[in-house]
């Protein structure tokens, strides 16, 4: 089977897409090429999963799209705005919940949300109302005056998600949002994210939980060694790899079919 499955059709023009990436290359000064000509399109209102093994280039791609990394070459457009040339317009409509718990230890929970909204130019009254709303949504109201360093891991994760949503982004990027969180938060999160997706927010999700990606995402891309090797709907990918679920398609991609649950179940029986 070819490693490069072109399941993504031409689709609508770049300006109508939430995220449009063309021939993106990121080469670090050490010479490491984290992204090698990545092209990707996410339709407005879509729920897109970006899957791949550790070190495949998922976070680098996200960092390039949000201004945390500078691409070596290629184009990134966010709702038609060039992420490099029109970075202010592009970043204004993106919310990022990064994989790392990158909270400022000096700030309280409430300040974290308020300052983030301020960076995006939200007026005071709007910041106050939105902060109250998200504190409530993510069950953080009782912790509002606590410094972020005193929060548990789960609470920090909630806060990072709330922070990403503060400025009402049109594209929400969730980089491993459920890594290390309990089942309750995971379900709460997915309910919330599905709701805002139905209301029009585009979601880009990276996760190692493939069954979640299969349930949530309407389109999925596999990235490996800095290249998009397949993209399409879950059904298209499973069919292309001749397997029954996304996990097996992923294992086929990384050449570890022997780890498939069906194989393991066969061994146990």
């Amino acid at each position: 089977m070819s490693n490069h499955l072109a399941l993504d059709g031409a689709g609508p023009p770049a300006n109508e897409r939430a995220l449009h990436i063309e021939e993106l290359v990121k080469r670090y000064p050490t010479g490491v090429e984290a992204l090698r000509g990545v092209s990707l399109g996410i339709e407005s209102g879509g729920f897109f999963g970006l899957l791949g093994p550790n070190g495949a280039g998922k976070s680098t791609l996200i960092h390039c799209a949000t201004g945390l990394a500078q691409p070596t070459s290629g184009t990134i457009r966010v709702f038609g705005h060039d992420a490099i040339g029109d970075y202010a317009e592009a970043r204004q409509v993106v919310g990022l919940a990064p994989q790392e718990l990158n909270l400022d230890w000096f700030l309280t929970v409430e300040e974290t949300l308020d300052y983030h909204a301020g960076y995006f130019g939200m007026p005071k009254r709007e910041r106050r109302d939105r902060t109250r709303e998200l504190l409530e949504t993510f069950s953080l109201t009782a912790k509002r005056d606590e410094r972020t360093r005193t929060l548990s891991g789960g609470m920090k994760r909630r806060l990072i998600l709330a922070r990403a949503l503060m400025h009402r982004p049109r594209l929400l990027i969730l980089d491993e949002p459920t890594a290390g969180v309990d089942i309750e938060l995971r379900l709460e999160l997915w309910h919330y994210v599905q709701r805002i997706n139905r209301e029009g927010t585009t979601i880009l999700l990276t996760t190692h939980y493939l069954e979640e990606a299969e349930q949530l995402c309407d389109r999925v891309a596999f990235i490996n060694e800095g290249q998009i090797v397949a993209q399409g709907s879950s059904a298209e990918l499973t069919s292309a790899y001749g397997v029954t679920n996304l996990e097996d398609a992923y294992l086929a991609l990384v050449g570890r079919q022997e780890l498939s649950r069906s194989q393991l179940e066969g061994l146990v029986s």
Partner: peptide, 17 residues
């Protein structure tokens, strides 16, 4: 300190010039 914590990413990914 902000580079250490990664907290500076919040400012860097904002529209601030």
């Amino acid at each position: 300190q902000q580079k250490f914590q990664g907290a500076i990413q919040d400012q860097l990914s904002s529209p601030a010039s």
